[in-house]
């Protein structure tokens, strides 16, 4: 059992990232959004923490250490998207292109600023939850030590 966990869980991160990307891309036309994508990634990271332990998980994936910065960057992106229209005299959260205007499409993904907002939310949620997972994992390890 534990062997399976050790082998399988670390490798789950890639598929999880794929799922998350799919959720964001599909989000506007199907179930899910930036938030659920963020939680999916965070849960994969949590599995890594559980199987490898905090130390090894963080060494093997250094990007985790920047989770708080990532979270704040995501939220700043969200704020920027939300409030930049004010500079042009539009109300906050006006999305471009606007209703009726043509949209650039890449497959199922329609490029609007709302998608960028979703990406920002994804970053924030993933970053914030990874930070929480890190704190909890440290808590547990201190006890073991």
């Amino acid at each position: 059992m534990s062997v399976i966990l050790e082998v399988v869980c670390p490798r789950l991160l890639g598929p999880a990232a794929m799922v998350a990307a799919a959720i964001i891309v599909k989000g506007y036309s199907d179930v899910g959004d930036g938030f659920s994508a963020g939680v999916v990634v965070a849960l994969a990271v949590a599995l890594r923490y559980v199987t490898l332990g905090a130390e090894r998980a963080e060494r093997s994936l250094p990007v985790l250490r920047h989770a708080p910065v990532l979270a704040v960057a995501g939220l700043l992106l969200v704020l920027a998207i939300g409030f930049f229209p004010v500079a042009f005299g539009e109300p906050p959260l006006t999305h471009f292109p606007r209703a009726g205007e043509p949209v650039v499409e890449i497959g199922a993904l329609e490029l609007t600023t709302a998608v960028a907002l979703d990406v920002g939310i994804f970053l924030l949620v993933a970053g914030a939850l990874v930070e929480t997972i890190h704190q909890i994992a440290r808590l547990v390890e201190e006890r073991r030590a």
Binding site: S29, V31, L75, V78, A99, A114, V115
Partner: peptide, 25 residues
């Protein structure tokens, strides 16, 4: 009009995006 299919997601990201911004904060 908001270029979206899932109304709930459109509400979260567009119509009531401000709520979502506060929520994640």
């Amino acid at each position: 009009e908001a270029h979206g299919g899932d109304v709930v997601t459109v509400i979260l990201a567009d119509f009531r995006g401000l709520d979502t911004m506060v929520e994640v904060t």
